[in-house]
Amino acid sequence: MKKTSKTILLVANGDLRQSANEGTWQAQAEMEAKLTGTLKSLGYKLVRAHPYKKDLKHGFIGSQKEGMEVFSRINPGTPVIVAEAVWQYSHHILAGLISHQAPILTIANWSGRWPGLVGMLNLNGSLTKAGVQYSTLWSEQFEDRFFLRGLEKWLKTGEVKHPSRHVKSLARASVPARARSIANRIATQLKTGKSIMGVFDEGCMGMYNAIIPDELLFQTGVFKERLSQSGLYYEMTRVTDQEANAVYRWLVKAGMKFHYGRDFETQLNKDMVLQQCKMYIAALRIADEFGCESIGIQY
């Protein structure tokens, strides 16, 4: 990174849902304040690339359209930090990051309450799949040695790398003979008999990283049946309460314990569980209808 560049742009990508963006904005604002202070202590100025939206009560990028508009106003030669404290839809900013020319750093919080780290990993996967160069860091309070050393490295060089000695090629791994035999038998069965994998709303939540290229999947003998979550919901309405309760009783008998609360906005209740039981039944019926040997949503 050029030493003359002391301004870093901050991008905060969010959810598509207004309720989620508004409800999690406080966590994002707190994270941004910490990052701003840290960058200032290192001699850099962190500037938001897009404003806080008073009418919506948050400062997230809330759509792909908005993301493209934001990046159209960004100098492609200015370094960018994508700070994520909560869940985000990667496709909102993927187009802008693909064409960005300066160093990109994705940063996430480490929180058991807010899925910023999960959102960042989703974005990282999308960037990797798209062939975009970027660096990544994470922290709980953004003041630990690991984070600060990595941030200083990125500010000076435009890049930070992490050790990967623990990653090994499967070709170099020792696979037990029995496991290899079973795997070969399954692979042969898939290639000769083929298999259908049911996928509900491929690309849901902007998860470009989770879309398996068909031409690669074909080589394994697996083919997609593209399904709709609206179709899944309709099938749920056809499942009876008696059927859902039968599944629930089976789970309880098997040892599953449910901890219910009275605040239905934030706590689990039995009606939610029964709806989930209906969803499982509906998914299996759809799988039977389309001949799917596996079925699910990509995440």
Rank of each mutant, 00 (worst) to 15 (best):
H166K: 09
A183M: 09
V160C: 08
Q229S: 09
V252R: 03
G158T: 11
Q219K: 15
T237D: 08
K194Q: 07
M207V: 05
L216M: 05
E202A: 14
P176E: 14
A254N: 10
R165M: 11
G158I: 09
M256C: 04
S228I: 02
R238D: 02
F218W: 12
A179S: 15
M197S: 09
N209A: 15
L216R: 05
K161D: 09
S195I: 11
L227V: 03
M236D: 09
E225L: 02
E235F: 10
L155I: 06
K161G: 02
A171L: 14
Q267V: 01
Y234A: 09
F218K: 10
A210M: 15
R180L: 12
A179W: 06
D214H: 06
Q189W: 11
Q229M: 15
Q219G: 03
F264W: 10
L227P: 01
S181M: 10
L170E: 06
T188M: 05
V199T: 13
Y208K: 09
R262P: 00
S195K: 13
A177I: 06
E225A: 13
H259Y: 05
G203R: 11
A177N: 11
A210C: 14
A244E: 01
K224H: 13
E202L: 14
I186E: 02
S230Q: 15
Y233R: 11
A187F: 12
D241S: 13
A183I: 06
K253N: 08
A179D: 13
V222T: 09
A183W: 10
E235M: 06
K161F: 07
I211H: 06
K253C: 03
M236F: 06
V239N: 04
C204H: 10
R238C: 03
Q267D: 07
Y248L: 15
G193V: 12
V160E: 06
T237F: 01
K168W: 04
I186K: 12
E159Q: 14
R226L: 13
S164Y: 10
A187P: 01
S228N: 03
A171T: 14
G255I: 05
Y234M: 08
R172A: 14
G261R: 07
Q229W: 03
C204V: 09
K194Y: 01
E265C: 00
A171M: 12
I182P: 05
S174G: 07
A177G: 00
F200P: 01
I212E: 03
P176K: 02
I212F: 15
Y248T: 07
V239A: 03
L155V: 04
M197I: 14
M205H: 03
N209F: 03
L170T: 12
N184Y: 09
L251R: 02
F258G: 07
E265F: 02
G255C: 08
K253F: 03
V252Y: 00
F264K: 15
V222Q: 08
W250I: 00
V160F: 11
A183Y: 13
W250T: 00
V199F: 12
H259T: 05
S174A: 12
E265D: 12
R172D: 14
R262A: 00
Q219L: 13
A179I: 11
P176C: 08
R262W: 08
Q219V: 07
Y233T: 11
F218S: 03
L251G: 00
E235C: 02
Y260R: 07
S181I: 00
G198S: 06
C204P: 00
K257N: 04
Y260N: 03
V252L: 00
